[in-house]
Each structure stands twice: as structure tokens, then as C-alpha cells.
Design a protein around this nucleic acid. Structure first.
Length: 301
RNA sequence: GGAGACGUAGCAAAGUGGCUAAAUGCGGCAGACUGUAAAUCUGCUCCCUAUGGGUUCGGUGGUUCGAAACCACCCGUCUCCA
């Protein structure tokens, strides 16, 4: 099994710096596990690494899509696995999109026939109560996991069932639920309060670096608020600014708030979905400790 | 100085005699997650030794079987006139 070092953690926790350090130390390439950094032109708001910061280390899955193109877990899973499998050098996956990381590492299966996430138009006409009743009847196991109000997931589960001819829970039960790589998942963290302060300052920095200009430029090029990249934090909030309902200060406060809330959700995912080895990224000693652990892990084949 | 309006939980904002520990939204906390995931969704959020108890709606006093709601005064905020 190939070894994959995963560097996870909430936004602003120091993943990028740590990934560079690891890449240098262990001579690896870096795959970005991020749903927004794939889009060209979305640089400042997505916290994308600059050419200079890359320091000659190979980075993958950044700037691989134009703003109008779609990108999803399935794309990430295929591309990341291919990179890992075909390169001689080891790969690091660095990113904060929990689902992407998990889908790559574990035996998640997506229908290759299905171009992109679809929803059956017939189902879309029905209301939540009806959808939920249908699911409860055809796939009680899955219905147990999805709340009546979560229309998106209700629709998706029913669509999958219709396409594949069997319930989603059955498809999942056929998966191994073991990691398909020898992965070590390192998680950057720090005290919550400190992280939140870092997030606030980081967003301020984005505004100072010209986030507004970046968004204006994207809009001028024809990117709309409906495009995926624009759904990202740091981008979607500008809609209210251009509507005239918010000033720049207010937009910034919103971006900061959304980033903090997002960080919390990332923690929830990472803490409950994957075996993460947490370390305090601001603490040199703790960072050394984890680096030693990683070396150790690399040395055992 | 005069006239009026208002003061409700962290914030905003309903409530105008019992059904109210007090709607709703925001924020906060916790959680779910198999193709939009920086998405979508859920629960909790006055205090406590908690299927029960305690203390609330600017303050004090009063009316009433019963008040956040009615009355009086006080304090504070805002608007208008001077």
C-alpha cells in the first residue's frame, strides 16, 4: 500500500506552512485537497499558495478548472488517486475539505457513468414529506441518517437509488470501510480562541491584499455568483456589497464570521470522521514531535 | 425648559392581565455528513445538585386571586419643539 501523508485541519491553522516543511523533509509533492483552490482566478479569497511560496515543490490540483466548470468529490477522488498511484515520489494531501480527504482515502464509490452530481427531475417536483416517506419505505437505513428537512440529501439518495437500482445504504454496505492507502493524518490545531483570532486577522489581510479587486475582476470576466467558486467564503458575501445592502466593513465581518463557523464544522468532521493525529501548529516542540512520528511512520514499510 | 416615544434573555425583536421561562431571527455551543461539502441539515442556548426547583422582562411601590403587560413615582435612551 502506498503511503500518503495527509495534512488536515481547519482554515488558518497553518496547513500550508506545515505541508511545505514536510514536503521538503520527506521529498514529496503536494496535492491540494480543497474545493475552491481548483478554480483559476480565485486566489486571495481561497488562501491559495503563491508561485513563490511553493518554493519549487510540486503542487497539484490547484488552478485546474475555469470558474464555470464543475468540480466535485468524485473528480478529486479520481485525480488525487491517480497522482498518488502514478508518481514515484510520495504524495502529501493538504487540505481542509473533509469529504474530499475521506473519499480519497476510503473506499467511497461514485458512479463513473454519472458525469456530475445529478438530481432526478421527477423527484425534484415532490415535497420533503413525500420524498422522506419514499426513502423510508425503500431505504429505511438511509432514511434514518437523513433529516426530513435536508432536501438536498434526500433528493440525492433517492436519485442514486433510482440510477443504480438499489438503495444507497446497500451500495455503502458493499464498501470495505478501510483505508485504501497507508495514510497518516496529521491535524494542525491550536486553542480555539487563538485560531479565531488568526482567522480574523487573515481575513483582514485578504481585504488589504485586494480581495475586492479580485472579485470585481472575476465579475467583469463574466463569472457569476452562481458559479461554484463564488459560493466560497470570501466570495459569496460580496453579493450584498454589489447589491448596495452592505459596506465593505460589513462584508469583512461576514467573511470573518463565516470562516469561524466553517472552522468549527471542519473540526466536527475531522474529529468524528477520520483518525487524526492532532498537534499544535504554533508549538515548535509539538510540531517536532509530530514530525518525528511521521518520520517513524515513513520508515516502517 | 416643553411635548411625545421607548426601556424584554449575549444582540435584534414579538408579546400588552392567566395558555409565557417568554414567539422569531442573529450570534454562541454541540452534532450529522458517500458527487454543489467553503455545501446542506439537526439539537441546545436565564440559573441549579434538574422528567423537578429557583430567579426574570430598567428600578421601586401599588392595583389584582393572578402582571413583562394596568397605575404612580424614579432612573435611562431617543425624537420633536424651545
Amino acid at each position: 500500500m502506498k503511503k500518503v501523508l495527509v495534512i488536515a485541519g481547519p482554515t488558518a491553522s497553518g496547513k500550508t506552512a506545515f505541508s511545505l516543511r514536510c514536503a521538503e523533509k520527506f521529498h514529496t509533492g503536494i496535492i491540494s485537497g480543497d474545493s475552491i483552490q481548483v478554480y483559476r482566478g480565485f486566489d486571495i479569497g481561497s488562501g491559495k499558495i503563491t508561485e513563490q511560496e511553493k518554493a519549487g515543490i510540486d503542487h497539484y490540483l490547484i488552478d485546474i478548472r475555469s470558474p464555470h466548470e464543475s468540480y466535485s468529490v468524485s473528480d478529486f477522488q479520481h485525480m488525487a488517486r491517480e497522482l498518488i498511484d502514478t508518481h514515484d515520489e510520495n504524495m502529501i494531501i493538504c487540505g481542509g475539505t473533509g469529504l474530499y480527504l475521506k473519499a480519497c482515502l476510503y473506499d467511497y464509490s461514485f458512479d463513473p457513468e454519472e458525469g456530475e452530481a445529478s438530481v432526478d427531475p421527477e423527484l425534484e417536483k415532490l415535497d420533503n414529506e413525500t420524498l422522506y416517506a419514499m426513502l423510508r419505505k425503500s431505504d429505511p437505513v438511509q432514511a434514518e441518517k437523513i433529516h426530513l428537512n435536508n432536501r438536498r440529501r434526500l433528493l440525492r439518495s433517492l436519485t442514486i437509488q433510482k440510477r443504480e437500482g438499489k438503495p444507497q445504504s446497500e451500495i455503502e454496505s458493499e464498501q470495505t470501510h478501510h483505508m485504501v492507502y497507508d495514510a497518516y493524518i496529521a491535524g494542525c490545531t491550536m486553542d480555539r480562541e487563538v485560531l479565531y483570532n488568526r482567522i480574523n486577522r487573515r481575513v483582514e489581510g485578504m481585504f488589504r491584499s485586494g480581495l475586492k479587486k479580485e472579485v470585481e475582476g472575476l465579475l467583469k470576466e463574466g463569472v457569476s455568483f452562481e458559479d461554484s467558486g463564488m459560493k466560497g467564503i470570501g466570495y459569496r458575501e460580496w453579493r450584498d456589497f454589489f447589491d448596495g445592502s452592505m459596506n465593505e466593513q460589513e462584508v469583512m465581518a461576514e467573511v470573518q464570521k463565516h470562516s469561524r463557523q466553517f472552522a468549527k464544522r471542519q473540526y466536527t468532521w475531522l474529529n468524528h470522521q477520520m483518525p487524526v493525529h492532532w498537534f499544535n501548529a504554533l508549538d515548535e516542540k509539538d510540531t517536532d514531535r509530530i514530525l518525528n512520528e511521521i518520520s517513524e511512520w515513513y520508515s516502517h514499510s
